[in-house]
Simulated assay, not measured.
Amino acid sequence: MPKQIYAVRFIAGQPNQYIFPPVKSSSKFNYTWSLMKPLHNSTLLKVMVWNIFKQQRTNWLSVLNSIRQETPLVLLQEAQTTPEMIKFATSHYLAVDQVPAIIFTQHPSGVMTLSTGYPVYCCPLSEREPLLRLAKSALITIYPIYCKQYLMVINIHAINFSLGLDVYSKQLGPIGDHILQHHGPVIMAGDFNTWSKKRILALYRFTDNMMLKEVVFTKDLRKRVFGRPLDFIFYRNMHVTEASVLVTKASDHNPLLVTFDLFSSIKHVKITLLKKNI
């Protein structure tokens, strides 16, 4: 493969597909309702977000198996394309998209999004660590969902080792461009490496500008560095009905589990259409 940014799509029984970033365009997204299977045929959508630590610890598969039947959308960071991972993912999810970040190992690792529906849009992103020169990846996918809407999902593993905020903010730039063009519900989640006050403030400035809300965990057992959480879930045009952190030794991060009610996004669409008709 050419040395450029791409995503690899794994689908059971099919050859791997390589997806490159779409040609840049100033036009807004304009989708015709897809005949593909929606991500979820309900107003309730459960999501898991987890830095899986390259599957270096035992029991990671048990954790994924415990949530797979009720979780249509799984966002993994540091997911390695081992045979065991690919077998699990393609056996239980229709589409599995990974953006390789570290590719000099036998099995590349990076962000990986597992979904029970096929995305109608896929944009891989990558930014290189300025000090270690290792890449961090992100993936933007869009899915048809309940009531002929489209959900934008952003899976990100943020830059870790950098002096200042220039590269950290640069990684968020194209993500912001996508969010501004999308008028439906949005989920942005992952490992943001917010181990400093400046990083957290930069992230909050970004999410405020994007009009994204933060999922709050009553019992907050997220992975922390210097007392600050690293993993976040942000959202727009939805309502959180349940949020929890699963304590496990299967990774150096604890998985985040959130259930969204998509009905609020449906009401938003109806109100918008009503205003246009007035």
Rank of each mutant, 00 (worst) to 15 (best):
F104C: 12
S109P: 00
H92P: 07
E70A: 04
V99A: 07
F53K: 13
F53Y: 13
N59F: 11
Q55G: 12
E78G: 05
N51V: 10
Q106Y: 03
H92Q: 14
Q98P: 07
C122P: 00
N65I: 12
T116G: 13
V49L: 05
T71G: 05
R68A: 14
V99S: 04
T90A: 08
R57P: 03
L94T: 15
T81F: 07
P108D: 14
I52S: 06
P100T: 08
T71L: 12
L76E: 06
Q80T: 12
R68G: 00
V96R: 00
V120E: 09
S115T: 15
G110S: 11
I86M: 08
V99C: 06
N65T: 07
I86Q: 06
T105N: 13
A79M: 06
L75A: 10
A101I: 01
T90R: 06
L61D: 11
K54T: 02
I67Q: 09
T90Y: 09
V63Q: 09
L61R: 11
N51K: 07
R68M: 10
F104H: 11
F53M: 08
F53L: 14
P72K: 02
P119N: 09
E84G: 04
V111R: 13
I86C: 06
E70H: 02
P72D: 11
T71V: 10
V49K: 01
V111Q: 05
N51H: 04
W50H: 05
T81R: 12
K54L: 06
P100C: 11
L76R: 07
N51I: 11
V74D: 02
C123A: 09
H107E: 11
P124M: 05
A95F: 05
Q69C: 03
K54W: 06
R57W: 08
V120D: 10
P108M: 14
M85V: 14
V99H: 03
G117L: 04
L76V: 01
T105L: 14
A89N: 12
E70K: 05
C123K: 15
T116I: 00
T82F: 08
T71I: 07
Q56N: 13
S66M: 02
K54P: 00
C122H: 03
A89R: 06
C123N: 13
K87P: 00
Q77S: 14
V96A: 12
H107I: 01
L64C: 01
K87Y: 14
V63L: 13
K87G: 05
M85C: 09
L73S: 06
L114S: 01
S66Q: 03
K54N: 10
G117A: 10
L73F: 04
N59H: 12
P100A: 12
P124S: 15
I86F: 08
T90I: 01
F53N: 10
Q98V: 01
T71S: 01
Y121F: 15
Q106G: 01
R57M: 11
S62Q: 11
Q55A: 07
V63N: 05
T82V: 08
P100M: 10
T116Y: 00
R57E: 08
L75G: 04
T81V: 14
I103W: 03
F53I: 02
I103L: 08
M48D: 03
T90G: 10
D97V: 13
M85Q: 04
